[in-house]
Structure formats: C-alpha cells, structure tokens
Design a protein around this nucleic acid. Structure first.
Lengths: 363, 363
DNA sequence: CAATATGCCGTGTGCGCACACGGATAAATT
DNA sequence: AATTTATCCGTGTGCGCACACGGCATATTG
C-alpha cells in the first residue's frame, strides 16, 4: 500500500522534465523525443504512477461525457422500467464525473420508431451510445452510425452476434433455463410432469425464449435419477382469465401428475390466477422477476422460486461500463452476463433492499 | 437531469456573497450571519447544489483518511480471508479519495492478542476503526477508546447489542436458518427426517449458531403441509474421518428416513466425506459458503444448496460505509444485513465472478 | 475620542491534471 | 547570414473546493 500517491510532478522531477511533458507521454500525444519518452515510461512503471481520477475529472470538467440511451418505452412493458431505473441510478452516481445521459425511447412494436430514436440520438452528438437493439436490421444501422462517429456502443438485454460493440450486458438465457429446470426438479418426484409455459404475445423475445427452453430441456435430459416428462405451452391469450382457467383445467385432466410449471417470463402470476386454490398450493411454480404480483404470491408460497434476471443491473452496469472505458480507460469484456439470483420468500427482502441501498460507482 | 452542475460559485453569485461564505455554510463552520446563512441554504436547496466530490477530495488531498482494521488472522481460519479481500478491494477503489487502510490482525483464540491489536490500532491515530469484535469484554474497551478519540467504529461479522457504533455489517443468522429450512423442506417428503449438524470446536460463533438453529426450527414449526422431524447433532471431532463415518452410519440405522442435513457452517464437505456413495446421492444437504471443497461437491450434486453469507461483502461494505459517512457525510443505518444468496451448481459461476469483476465505489 | 476587540465576509493559494500557447533550439531553406 | 520550419519542451491557466488569512465594518472599552 503506497503511503504517498505518485503524481505527475513526482515523476517529472525524477526524470528532470516538466509535468507537461509527462502529461504528453501519459496521453500519447506525441511531440516528445524517444529518449525522454522511454525514461518517463520507465519511471512511471518504477514509481507505480496511477493518475488521480479526481483531479483528472476536475480538469476535464468543461466537457461533459454525454451518453445517449435508446430504450423501449417502459409504459408499454413495465419490464423496461427496471433497466431505466438502473440507468438513472448509475447516472446519478457518476454525475460528479460530469457524465450526462439523454434518453431516446421508442415503441417496442415499431422498428421505424426505433430508427427514429437512433437518428435523434446520433444527431445529438453523444460521446457514447447505450441501446437495447430489439430489431436486428435497424440495429445494424445504429452500429454503422456509431462506427462512423467513432463512439463506443453498448448493448443491453439483446445481443447481436458478431457485432463490433464495446460490450453486451444481459442475462444468460440458456443458463437461466437450466437453473429453472434444476429448481423444479428438486421439488418434483419421479414420474411427475412439468410444463414450460410461455405467456407472450410478441416474438420480440423469441431468441431469449428459445434459449431458455433449450436450457430447461437440456437440464432434464441430463439427469438420470428421476424421470420427469416435459410439456410446452404457448399462450397468447394470457389476459383472458376465463380462457386461462379453462385451459388450465384441461391440462390437469390430460396430465394428472402435472406438478411443476416454468413460466419463462415475468407473468407467473397470470398462471397462478388461472389455478384452483387447492392446485395453487400443490404445484411448484418457477418464474422470473421481482415484480409486485409475483412477490405477493411468493410470500404466499404459491410461487416457489423466482429467478431474478437483475434487469436493474443491466442499466447500471451499462453506464459503469462506458464510464470505466472512456473516463478510466479500463479494459471491458465483450460479454457481461448478470448473476442469476434465486429468490424465495425467505431472502427476498435483501434483494429488494439491495437495489435501493447498495452504494457504488467506479473503481 | 440538471444539465449544468451547480457549484459553490453559482450559489454565491445568486445570493451575492463570496464562495468562501457559502463554503462556511456548507461546512457549518459558523462566522456567517443568520440572514445570509438562511438565504444561502435556501438557494442551495432551490438550485439543487451537490458538492463536487472530485474537487472536494482534491482539495482535501493533503490529509489522508486512515482506517484501522482489526481482524482475526486469516491463516487460522480461511473464512477471514474473505472479508480481508473485500476490505482490500474496497480500499483499492477508494484510493483516489486518499483513503488509507492499516491492518491489525489478532489470533482468534486469544482475547489478549485482540486487546493488543486494539491498542496498536488506536495509538496509530486513525480516522476510523473497523473491527470484528469476537470477544465481548475486550470489544468494550475498543468501544470506549473510539468514543474517547471521537472516531467512528464499524463492526463486522459480530454485533454487540446496544453498542454505540456507526454500523454493524453482517449476516442475519436467524434468517439464514429459516432459509436453510425452506430449501431443505422443498426437497423433502412428508414423514422425512432432517438433521442440523454443527461441526465446530469453538464456541466463538455460539451466538450465530444459536440464531441459525432457532431460525431453522422455527421454519419447520411454521409449516403445516408436511411433517418433518428435526434432529440436532454437535460434533467436535469432525477432523477424524473414522469417527465421522461411524457416527453417520449409526444415525442412518437409528433414523432410516433421515434424508436431509443442514450444516451450520462452511464444513458441509466434512459431512459428505463421512457418507457412503449411495447415501451421498440420496440425502439433501444444505450448507454455507463458496469454499473450494464445497464447490466441488456442489458441482457433483452432493451438496444441493449453499447459502452464501457474502463474507466478502462485509469487508467491502465496511469500507464504503466509513467513506460514505466521513467523506460524503451520508446517513448510515445502524445495522446492515447482507443478502442471503442461494447458490446451486447452475448459478455458482456468476457469484464467483461477481467478486472479481463488479466495479464500484461511492455514490 | 482613540484604542482595541469582535463578528462577518472576501481573497488567495493549492490540490493533480489537461491542454493551449509560446519559447527555445537545431535543422533546413533562402 | 538571415529567415523559415520543424521538433521538442516549459509555462500558465482553470476545473471546484477547503481553508488560512486578512480586511472591513461595528461594538466595546479605557
């Protein structure tokens, strides 16, 4: 632990030059003779120089670092409120580095709206872009735009394979499916049946869904201790209670030992609502996301496990990633998967608090 | 989102005084007339002034903030390596605020050694103290010392009820016991038996153990769906494989339907080693901590769940708490419980990586 | 009334860094 | 030899804040 922090001045004195010259070397701005450059670089290593970020940010304070954020409208789907919150929280915690954020929201059902946001965002001349690229073709235009302007781009939630971006931050859908299988299996008995239920109208998450399904089935194929039979259901009419109840009733008639459900998104509560009280207590349900209706059912024991995708963290890490890269010149991994938190009634409160309290910023 | 950051100068101009006067109000250093003080405070609220931490830390950079850390020697118990790591990591991330840390380790079996560390720590004239107060009486001396020197004190791992400290950071032992009960119960059937196993020689964790046991039993008393019978075992000879095997054999003879174990500390692997191969696959074991031997058995399915106490975070949060209080003048809650992470084979890697990658500091 | 004390407030300096600007030297050109 | 050009390097200023210092009033005292 170095007692005294090494400053530009220190190594300038050591080498016998001015701080300006050292600064030129630090920023590789040229106009320094090879010999002196070598001596400075050598001295920096030897003395263990590390720039004082506080001072750096102060000195840079005239030019803000602006991040354009392209996100679906959270009023269309409450899911997007979570990344948004994380983004806002992160923005708040790096305000002191003069980081500014600007939101460009779009309708998650209209690719053209996305494009419009892309245009607006790029025209605003940002220092970096963070986006949820729901539409593949349109996202490629964003990609090109960022390359042209030579600014870093971060994707959250949805990745585009092979895209030349700074980083992708999201869930590991496949692994979350595997995890769901694991949790369900733990509570099921030999000979039981389980069902994967997809309650969704759109296919915007098609890829995530596929991966989850694959992971879920792979898990059950991989075990040999018990025999659990897996079924699959896709229901677009999850908003019609009557339809749902009817559907559920039929399932149990056809599959008496149907004892487990895996709801692949945050709508597990919709499934519970469709079940009779007695059934609610018997079947094991695994779902996603700590949203209010799910939490209530978790507390009642009617949802056994919730897997927390940590959507909040997507936004948070997104900002931190950009700040780490651009202001702290850190190396960033191409892919950053978020932890898959397992939530039950007994530990849920810590996860709810964590997003509120945990203080953090930059290293 | 305020486009332009508000500075001291801004509000000085607005009120019509100098920055020095505003600064005096900010730091409550007096020598300001009541009227001007009010006007300044009003303007600060109205304009939403927030100090620029970078500038503040720069201006304070001559006087480091030194934190004395009193911790058990991690060579005696690998557990303590985790908080230590968290402490070091946190120290690293706040280095730029000129925060320095100094470790004073002690033997976890010798109260007098602890006292010696306390003396050394207090004599070094720290700006704050962080300690793991394993010994009640001796800890009281530390308490008095800090009160005398008027410096904040943070406890980790072990709390002392009613002690006047800044904050306690640790696990919620009771709740972790409840959680263990929940997890075990999920995999057990009506009529099964479960056993709480305490593999420990010392009673230094007596309190934590009691709480865990209470939580565990409370859980099973609270359910009415199944009937699970609970047993308890305290084994000090966990280091003798022959003894352990013999003991285990006897248990299964006496309790044929013994299908679940809750190991109250990180030594779940010791229990697994004492079981026959067939039994290893059958019984459900819930333990604590992501240590190497446990992880291996988790991957093999021989430990079903590990509850992660996040000992790493104790250290990390400890430093952040002190920095938040002293440098950012934030309010700090008296008790900070750490999340109870549920770890299975399928999500373990995220938790191992998380401690390595997650970048953070201060808000 | 002068001398001193007291309350209030502005000014100046430095923290470490970034960067524009200009000065110095040597090399190349006229 | 005088001038230009290129190369290399030092200096100065400001970022927002903390704080010592000193100045200017007004109040207090001899």
């Amino acid at each position: 632990m170095p007692d005294q922090r090494i400053t530009l001045k220190d190594i300038a004195q050591r080498v016998g030059v001015s701080t300006g010259t050292v600064d030129r070397v630090v920023h590789k701005r040229g106009h320094v003779s090879a010999e002196i450059r070598d001596r400075i670089e050598h001295a920096m290593k030897e003395m263990g120089y590390a720039p004082n970020l506080a001072a750096r940010s102060l000195a840079n304070n005239n030019k803000p670092f602006r991040i354009a954020i392209i996100l679906p409208d959270y009023r269309q789907d409450p899911y997007w409120a979570q990344p948004k919150e994380g983004l806002e929280r992160a923005a708040e915690s790096v305000r002191h580095y003069n980081v500014q954020t600007e939101f460009f929201s779009f309708s998650m059902f209209q690719p053209r709206d996305f494009l419009e946001s892309v245009d607006k965002a790029l025209e605003s001349g940002p220092g970096a872009v963070l986006a949820a690229p729901l539409f593949l073709e349109e996202a490629k235009i964003l990609l090109k735009g960022c390359q042209l302007q030579n600014i870093p781009l971060v994707f959250i939630n949805t990745d585009i394979e092979g895209a030349d971006i700074l980083s992708y931050i999201g869930q590991d859908s496949y692994q979350s499916g595997v995890l769901a299988g694991r949790l369900l299996n733990f509570g099921l008995s030999d000979g039981d049946h389980a069902m994967l239920v997809n309650l969704d109208k759109e296919v915007s998450n098609a890829r995530h869904l596929q991966d989850k399904e694959r992971g879920f089935k792979d898990y059950f194929n991989g075990i040999d201790k018990k025999s659990i039979q897996i079924h699959t259901a896709v229901l677009e009419n999850f908003d019609q209670p009557d339809f749902m109840r009817e559907w559920a009733k039929k399932q149990f008639e056809q599959i008496p030992r149907l004892n487990g459900f895996f709801v692949t998104n945050s709508r597990a509560y919709k499934l519970v609502e469709a079940l009779d009280a007695a059934v609610q207590d018997r079947v094991k349900i695994v779902g996603f996301d700590l949203i209010e209706p799910n939490l209530k059912l978790l507390a009642q024991g009617k949802i056994r496990f919730l897997i927390n995708q940590n959507a909040w963290h997507q936004g948070y890490l997104g900002i931190l990633t950009l700040v780490n890269k651009m202001l702290m010149s850190k190396e960033i991994p191409r892919t950053q998967y978020l932890p898959l938190d397992i939530i039950v009634k007994e530990n849920v409160e810590y996860y709810l608090k964590r997003t509120l309290e945990l203080p953090m910023v930059i290293v």
